[in-house]
Write a protein that binds this DNA or RNA. Structure first.
Length: 423
RNA sequence: GUGGGUGUAGCUCAGCUGGAUAGAGCACCAGGUUGUGGCCCUGGUGGCCGCGGGUUCAAGUCCCGUCACUCACCCCA
């Protein structure tokens, strides 16, 4: 074999397509139910958009972007997430003049140069939702509900939100200061990575998994107790709405997401069954980002959900999608005249929206029937010398082998009341 | 970028401490019925044993390197 797929990419074979079809259909139903419209930004943008939007000090920008130069020497990057591109689309196309909130979703591939492992790839597919221009905590709840609905309709068990607030430019710096003070007192106890985090990205100290660091995390100040008035009441309202609608959630003080732009709400939905990765979706509020990317000050909230991870969890939980419809009729033939008749009949049946396959080549009837059996057909239409002579076709039912001669002009009628094509 | 595991047929895997023309099951093709599938029987196609080097009379088997896959870390969907 000469070529193989690139590290971290995968082929989606026919067996897996029912999962994709089901999930996509649910996404269309739910977004329509909630009033979100689809937008499709391009797969690549100028590099600066992502550097600005995602944050220069994030791991994504520092080491995970697929960045390349085009023939005009422009630096371009395959999108490592949706939000920055969707905001660019929103601003460039004047959508900021629309009645707010502006509610949109996207589906498509995302690229990050990482070491692949269970539930993580270099190219994966995300379902992404964004709502621009509304600061009410009720929309935080609505956006979270979209993810919830999707997983619930797919039949997931044991769903639970992980929730936290990361504050805002008013209260977060004060909290970070307290956190840093706490860590400086225990600096001799923490790991090398944490020493680096202490300087560069103090919030990330909280989700370190090194055992030695856990006591320091346990005793660290909790951000939700250090929020400003505005952030605290926003967080309280969101929790209230979740309580009201009986959505299970855990306030997770250690949930701080890897992107710089989050303010106030951050959340994930967790599931078991995807190895070390347990987040099926992740998102939050980013009230300063649109302004940072050149728009008017506008609040926003969104999330991304990895479809490959959804499929992994479905498989883990034994959730099977309905099979895609395939033809259950095949036309077998013997002899050149019969073959021509078969080609013609195939055409007629397909025009009548009856799914049908044609047998190819000039093989023994035995071989064609064996093929029909392997393909899981319900009926075989046999056309040979005899059928050509009297303008009939032999229709054989494979389940019990019963067969009958049907005049060729009655074949469509024969099938139309027992086979309905998928629309 | 770091660490562990694994690379033999399309797929799942045997191949013991180095000594065959490299195997099995499934799948595929054909025949057993020159107009009839499934079950069964018979035969067949298909492998530079990941790649490169080394040790040896002899390497699928041992050593080194490399690449790929995989799991985990960092981080994330």
């Amino acid at each position: 074999m000469k070529f193989k797929s690139i590290t971290g990419t995968r082929d989606v074979l026919p067996e897996e397509q029912p999962y994709w079809r089901l999930i996509e259909n649910k996404i269309y139903q739910i977004t329509s139910l909630f009033g979100y419209q689809r937008v499709d930004p391009p797969i690549f943008e100028e590099t600066a958009l992502f550097v600005r939007g995602v944050g220069e000090t994030t791991d994504i920008v520092e080491k995970e972007m697929y960045t390349f130069k085009d023939k005009s020497d422009n630096s371009l990057t395959l999108r490592p997430e949706f939000t920055a591109g969707v905001i660019r689309l929103y601003l460039q196309n004047g959508m900021h003049m629309l009645t707010k909130p502006v509610k949109v979703f996207s589906i498509g591939p995302i690229f990050r140069y990482e070491r692949p492992q269970a539930g993580r790839f270099r190219q994966h597919t995300q379902f992404n939702v964004e709502a621009f221009g509304e600061k009410d905590a009720a929309i935080d709840f609505e956006v979270m509900s979209i993810a919830w609905h999707l997983y619930a309709e797919l039949g997931f068990k044991g769903l639970r939100f992980q929730l936290n607030s990361t504050g805002c430019p008013v209260c977060r710096p004060q909290y970070i200061e307290k956190l840093q003070n706490h860590y400086r007192k225990h600096i001799h106890l923490i790991c090398q990575d944490c020493k680096r985090r202490l300087q560069r990205n103090a919030l990330r100290l909280l989700d370190c998994k090194v055992p030695d660091c856990q006591p320091v995390i346990q005793s660290a100040p909790v951000i939700s107790e250090h929020l400003c008035q505005d952030c605290e009441s926003h967080f309280a309202k969101l929790c209230h709405y979740l309580d009201l609608m009986e959505r299970p959630y855990t306030i997770n003080h250690k949930l701080v997401r890897g992107l710089d732009y989050y303010t106030k709400t951050v959340f994930e939905v967790w599931a078991q069954g995807i190895g070390a990765q347990n987040a099926m979706c992740g998102g939050g509020r980013y009230d300063g980002l649109i302004e940072l990317l050149g728009g008017d000050p506008t609040p926003g909230i969104g999330f991304g959900s990895g479809i490959e991870r959804i499929i992994l969890v479905m498989k883990e939980q034994g959730l099977t999608p309905p099979p895609l419809e395939v033809p259950k009729i095949i036309i077998a033939h013997m002899g050149e005249a019969a073959k021509e008749m078969a080609i013609n009949l195939t055409h007629q049946l397909r025009n009548a929206r009856i799914p049908v396959q044609l047998s190819f080549g000039d093989r023994s009837l035995k071989s064609q029937l064996r093929e029909a059996n392997r393909l899981g057909m319900d009926h075989v239409i046999i056309i040979a010398e005899q059928e050509v002579a009297d303008q009939t076709a032999t229709i054989k039912r494979l389940s019990d082998g019963v067969q009958e001669a049907v005049p060729q002009n009655k074949i469509i009628a024969f099938f139309s009341d027992r086979v309905v094509a998928q629309s």
